[in-house]
């Protein structure tokens, strides 16, 4: 799992010390820098800002912009809708899992990719489809997987 550098968390907290009502901004800073908010980070904020953990967690679990699980810099959605299934989506998923050495729902240890499956991306004619961040890649084959992933740092 992607560890969050707690020294860096301390630095971020330091920048907000003594100010009121900064929790949301502080959490967003941590989210932006690490792409998620770990239990350790919450414990640290709780200790340093003297805010109970459950209150921090309440906020972090409320805002869509915050993630309580590690999320990679790029998110791959593999369409598993019926049309894509028929056209070989399972093979594509296998290949991506093999390539990134993670399973669906997981994140690579270098935080580069998170892998998710979805039901029908609404462009069945292009199947099989994967969506990386905002970009649709359609009519792909397993052989194309590596070069597509290569486009994302």
């Amino acid at each position: 799992m992607a560890e969050i550098n707690l020294k860096r968390v301390d630095e971020i907290i330091e920048g907000y010390k003594g100010e009121e009502g900064v929790l949301i901004q502080l959490l967003l800073d941590i989210q932006n820098e690490f792409n998620w908010i770990s239990p350790e980070a919450i414990a640290r904020i709780s200790e340093q800002m003297r805010i109970p953990k459950s209150q921090i967690y309440r906020i972090a679990s409320f805002y869509k912009a915050m993630s309580l699980k590690p999320v990679g810099r790029h998110i791959i959605h593999v369409c598993m809708g019926t049309a894509c299934q028929v056209r070989g989506a399972p093979k594509i998923l296998d290949r991506i899992e093999e390539n990134l050495k993670i399973k669906e729902g997981e994140t690579t240890s270098d935080m580069r990719f998170s892998l998710k499956r979805v039901n029908c991306l609404g462009c069945c004619a292009m199947g099989p489809v994967i969506l990386v961040d905002g970009t649709y890649h359609g009519k792909i084959t397993s052989a194309m997987v590596e070069s597509i992933l290569g486009q994302y740092e």
């Binding site: 109970p52 953990k53 459950s54 209150q55 967690y57 309440r58 679990s61 409320f62 869509k64």
Partner: peptide
């Protein structure tokens, strides 16, 4: 005063 629980998620 310990705030062990909260309403979480949305």
């Amino acid at each position: 005063g310990v705030s062990a629980i909260n309403v979480i998620s949305r």
